[in-house]
């Protein structure tokens, strides 16, 4: 497959929860090695769109193709960091066992072997949580847990990395560090980041999708006037920076 073919194609997609439309007639193409930021208000359907792409939800109508096939068949391509990393916080599970979940059924294998453990330890190093492997998940801070979940997603060796609000429990320096890492990973992987925090639309991001029932796709990482005008109730901090519509340009553009 050439690099010109989109890695993810979404066509006329609609989805509703108990009759309440969440997404209406959505079409987007995500090119290979894209770094896409999905933004929009809470309840606008960002997480729903991601779960549809992952094949965790079934669309009411329309279709999604990942490398030309249905998402369920391509589930092994995805590394997924869910929105809530604090689920089941009191569950008796160690950090390394959470990360090893990412190695489950790797290339169809059922069991965890030495290679899987080595791969898991590599992601532990990469995420800077070495020394925490044998701690219980409840004994970590929220920021550390976030890193564990990213490590788990990376342990799957994904082509497409999808992170749902990964910066929720992370401080500013942690965010910068995380995006630096994602920028590096983007050299080999397609990355999709969901956020309601427009600060994340950093220089690493290559395109932006605004989601509020419908989706508007913007190649390039600027937040344009048109996007603000669509009534996305953009967060105050964007405007408060004093350079509305411009602050998110790449550094070289200034």
């Amino acid at each position: 497959m050439t690099s010109d073919t989109p890695i993810i194609q979404v066509r006329d997609l609609s989805f509703s929860y108990n009759g309440q439309p969440a997404l209406v007639n959505v079409s987007i193409d995500v090119p290979d090695k894209e770094f896409l930021a999905i933004i929009g208000p809470n309840g606008g359907g960002k997480s729903t769109l991601v779960k549809l792409i992952l094949g965790l939800l079934e669309p009411d109508s329309g279709k999604i193709l990942v490398r030309g096939r249905s998402p369920k068949k391509m589930a092994h391509c995805f590394g997924y960091v869910p929105q809530d990393v604090n689920i089941n916080i009191h569950f008796p599970i160690s950090v390394i066992d959470v990360i090893l979940m990412g190695r489950l059924r790797h290339r169809g294998r059922g069991r965890i072997n030495a290679e899987d453990r080595q791969k898991a330890m590599e992601t532990v190093q990469l995420m800077g949580i070495a020394g925490f492997e044998n701690r219980r998940i409840k004994d970590l801070s929220a920021g550390q847990r976030e890193r564990v979940f990213i490590a788990r997603a990376l342990a799957t060796d994904p082509d497409i990395l999808i992170l749902d609000e990964p910066t929720a429990g992370v401080d500013t320096s942690g965010k910068t560090e995380l995006y630096h890492l994602l920028g590096k990973l983007n050299e080999t992987k397609t990355i999709i980041v969901v956020s309601h925090d427009l600060m994340i639309v950093s220089s690493y991001v290559k395109s932006v999708a605004c989601v509020n029932q419908t989706v508007h796709y913007h190649p390039g990482n600027e937040i344009t006037e048109a996007m603000l005008d669509m009534g996305y109730h953009c967060p105050v901090e964007l405007v408060a920076h004093g350079q509305p519509h411009r602050i998110l340009k790449t550094h070289g553009d200034f």
Partner: peptide, 19 residues
């Protein structure tokens, strides 16, 4: 064991891994 652990802790992720 590993499947049960994954299902009990995070069923959504387990599903994604093909469990």
């Amino acid at each position: 064991y590993r499947d049960i652990l994954a299902i009990s802790y995070d069923a959504e992720f387990a599903k994604l891994r093909g469990v």
